[in-house]
Write a protein that binds this DNA or RNA. Sequence first.
DNA 1: TTCGTTGGACAGACAGTAAATCCAACTTAG
DNA 2: CTAAGTTGGATTTACTGTCTGTCCAACGAA
Lengths: 198, 198
Amino acid sequence: MSPRNYRSDKRTAAAEETRLRVLTAARTLLSGASTTQVSVDAVAKAADVSRQTVYNAFGSKSGLLEALFDSIASQSGMDLQPAFTAPDLTTALDHFSEAFCVFWASDPLVIRRLHGMAVLDRVLDRLLRDRNEMRRSALVSLLERFGAGTGPDTVDMIWQLTSFETYDSLTGADASRDTAQAARLIAAAAVAFHERTA
Amino acid sequence: MSPRNYRSDKRTAAAEETRLRVLTAARTLLSGASTTQVSVDAVAKAADVSRQTVYNAFGSKSGLLEALFDSIASQSGMDLQPAFTAPDLTTALDHFSEAFCVFWASDPLVIRRLHGMAVLDRVLDRLLRDRNEMRRSALVSLLERFGAGTGPDTVDMIWQLTSFETYDSLTGADASRDTAQAARLIAAAAVAFHERTA
DNA sequence: TTCGTTGGACAGACAGTAAATCCAACTTAG
DNA sequence: CTAAGTTGGATTTACTGTCTGTCCAACGAA
């Protein structure tokens, strides 16, 4: 009944639970508009956990931030399926834009800060670059699927249009636009650019 | 006794000179791909100046970074004149894009880091937002001059297309594109978007 | 017993402040 | 014109406080 290679001690389960508590605490702190700096100590206190436990679980602050980003990504409910099963390129790009905007919208404050920290954090920077590269290859696959050109100009431009920076700029501050509107705007720009260079 | 006409040209000149030395030292350090973190102490040592002198001259690390950005801006030789004297909107947008790409190209490494630091630095963040706002109003003026629509979608999209993030993404890493090529690409996207929504 | 957790102590960097001091540029009294 | 005093930038030294990261002895439940 109990498979040997499936270990689920109550202890490891509890460890996983504290790991989650730390992640959500970090996310909450990073969402706080008030605080600029978020220390490991602050995260530990917010998670009601010792600082050492955070280091045990994530190795370093960079590791914690990495895990946080991936945690956000996995919880965002992003779905690329509609884009790849779309009838034509235009609606495909529409769904592609929508998918990533949903992701960016899942926690823009935290994602913005993680992007900023990445500039000063080699480890985090590498992670975000890798994740961005996944968006790029997904885009190339999509363009190929619909027989569209995959020249560097087209790919780079649509890649940039679907980036977090673009989403953040179009929804941020005084530009009162919701996620769906931003997604449509981005898709419109992508289609316009593609049609013009086709 | 406080003499009213106490002028000391040589001293203020010397002070200005050390101020410049500190700025160039900071710029050099921030350009260095090797180091991720740049401390005030490191800047002071590189400028062959005491740490206190840096604080005397700039007040804080934020102040130093602010002064550095404006120094780069003033040295970049950016010129918006061609955009405003262009015969039509298309060439105007071309020159507009070119102008800002020249600015971004003047020191992309340092500008990228300053943008990153701004996420964790309220003072620097405010400065960069203000400078970005200047680009926005310039864009609005340009569009109005050529009788083009200044709807939020048009403005926001072209604003984002001419941002540093877009320039950086299109010229960075494996995308082997020089500044002029990036400028043309950005302008093409701006024109395509504008024509489609006109 | 084992293993996650805890609390504390510790070293090394870093931001920012403060006071005493040095020195060259400058002003002014004689 | 010169000597004496003033000013302001720069330096030195030392301090407070925060943060990352590491180490370790002890605790407590599985």
